[in-house]
Simulated scan of single mutants.
Amino acid sequence: MKISDDIQKLLPFGYLFLVIMGILKECFFHYQLGINILKYSTIIDILISPIATFTSNPIILVFVISLFIFHYHLPSLLAKYNDRKFVIRTFELKKIEGFSEAETKSYFNSVSVKTLAAILCSFFLGYGLAGGYFTGKKIRDHKESYNYRINYNNGKSEEIFLINTNSLYYFYTVKGSKTIKITPLGAVENMELIENKMVTKGLFLYNTSL
């Protein structure tokens, strides 16, 4: 399918928007845990933050793909059903009488883009705020799941609740403590997923966050 000129022009700005949303999501999430995540992030972490968020869970990935597919076809749906009251109220459409074909197409494209941007903004901010709140509550109430054992290069091991990880650091709490530890990946030999008794090397967990 041919992508319209309006959409093609917005693609670079669209990715910039996603990066900004990814940064805000991570900041809101970690701020509630007392972490300034930008101090512990690289440029690569920041650039892939929206991709990491989208791929963090299969349900989220399916939702996001469906969202983009729907909004790709939304302009043609609006052109077809723009006289329906429900559609007019939902998308706050204005009358298009007197619009040329090109103006009508551009208008419906802009409505689709604005709607998609609003949904993504709500998703990222809601994800960050809710995720940080419930993670913090788990730690305060000692309701974490200590599913991992971290093995350090010095031979020491600890059972942990893994909060997050990026290209440089692990963020976690140790069993029996509310204190959040931030450990460089280089200080860790490997990590064991206790439930499945399988060893996962440090960078295996890298796709979970900023």
Rank of each mutant, 00 (worst) to 15 (best):
K2N: 13
S4Y: 08
D5I: 07
Q8F: 13
K9H: 06
K9T: 08
K9E: 09
L10A: 15
Y15H: 06
M21Q: 07
L24R: 11
K25G: 09
C27W: 13
F29C: 03
H30Q: 05
H30S: 08
G34P: 03
L38E: 08
S41I: 04
I43Y: 03
I44F: 04
D45Y: 00
I48W: 05
S49D: 07
I51V: 12
T53V: 05
F54E: 01
T55A: 05
T55E: 07
S56N: 11
N57M: 03
P58V: 00
P58R: 03
P58G: 05
I60T: 10
F63K: 03
F63H: 01
I65P: 05
L67T: 03
H71L: 02
P75Q: 03
P75D: 02
S76E: 11
L77F: 07
L78Y: 00
A79S: 11
A79V: 06
N82A: 02
R84D: 15
K85A: 14
F86Q: 15
V87M: 01
I88E: 10
R89P: 12
E92W: 15
K94M: 13
E97T: 07
G98A: 12
S100H: 05
S100A: 08
E101K: 08
A102H: 10
E103M: 09
S110I: 07
V113C: 02
L116W: 03
A117R: 04
L120N: 05
F123E: 04
F123V: 05
G126S: 08
Y127A: 11
L129H: 05
G132I: 01
G132N: 03
Y133K: 10
F134L: 12
G136V: 11
R140A: 15
E144C: 12
Y146C: 06
Y152K: 08
N153D: 04
N154R: 05
G155R: 06
G155I: 06
T165V: 10
N166G: 04
Y170Q: 03
K178N: 14
K178L: 10
T179C: 00
T179L: 05
K181P: 06
I182N: 06
I182P: 04
L185V: 07
G186Y: 00
V188Y: 01
M191A: 13
E192P: 07
E195Y: 09
N196K: 15
V199A: 06
G202Q: 01
G202K: 10
L203W: 12
L203S: 15
Y206D: 09
S209M: 04
